Computed example of a mutant assay.
Amino acid sequence: MSSQQLYHGDTEVSRKEQQPAMDHVPDALATAIAREMGNILVRQPLGLMDDFFLAGGDSSRAVELITRLVERCALGDAEATDQLHAALTLAMFDNASPAAIAEAIAKQTIERS
């Protein structure tokens, strides 16, 4: 597998196709997530398109990240919190970049408005 290829299920998908649509995601959110990922991995912040798992993350650290992000978003009610947690869990194992996680948070926030 080349560095430009990812495997998604049984289908090979190019990295370009996996990149999130950043047009509605604030850079500050993605940057904050990149910084938090770096904190969890005890390293410098990740780049906005860097993969959390390729940077040294594992499933335990992913759960820690998701928990921190859900706590910080504080959507107000249990249902919204559960929906955000589920969305972030799916997003994390689909495309674990700060930009993609920020997009998942932004999408949940927009859907709640």
Rank of each mutant, 00 (worst) to 15 (best):
I66T: 07
E79P: 03
G76A: 07
Q44P: 05
F52I: 01
R43I: 09
I105D: 00
D58A: 10
L84S: 01
M37P: 00
L46I: 04
L90T: 12
L84Q: 02
V42N: 14
A78T: 11
F93I: 00
F52S: 00
V42W: 13
R61G: 12
G76C: 07
R61S: 12
D77F: 05
T81Q: 12
G57H: 08
G76R: 03
A91C: 14
M49Y: 13
L41S: 04
D51S: 11
L41T: 01
A86V: 08
L90S: 15
A55T: 04
E64N: 15
L65H: 03
D58G: 10
G57W: 09
L75E: 06
D77V: 08
G57S: 08
D50P: 05
F53G: 01
A62G: 13
I40Q: 03
I101E: 01
A62K: 02
P45M: 08
T81K: 11
P98S: 06
R68D: 10
D50A: 12
A104K: 02
D50N: 11
L84Y: 03
C73R: 09
G76N: 06
D94V: 06
I105F: 03
E71I: 00
L46C: 07
A78P: 06
R61P: 02
S59C: 09
V63K: 12
N95Q: 13
A86N: 11
G56L: 10
A91Q: 04
A91N: 00
L90Y: 15
P45N: 08
R43H: 12
G56R: 05
G76E: 08
M92F: 07
L41W: 06
H85Q: 14
S97E: 01
G47I: 01
G57C: 08
I101L: 14
S97A: 08
G56Y: 10
E71N: 09
A78V: 06
S59T: 06
V70C: 05
Q83A: 15
F53K: 06
G47M: 08
L90P: 07
T67G: 13
D58K: 09
T81V: 11
D77T: 06
S60A: 14
I101N: 01
I101Y: 05
D50E: 12
V42D: 14
S59W: 09
G38Y: 07
M92H: 03
A55C: 13
A78C: 07
T81A: 12
V63Q: 13
L41Q: 01
V42Q: 15
G47P: 04
H85P: 04
L54G: 10
M37A: 05
L54F: 15
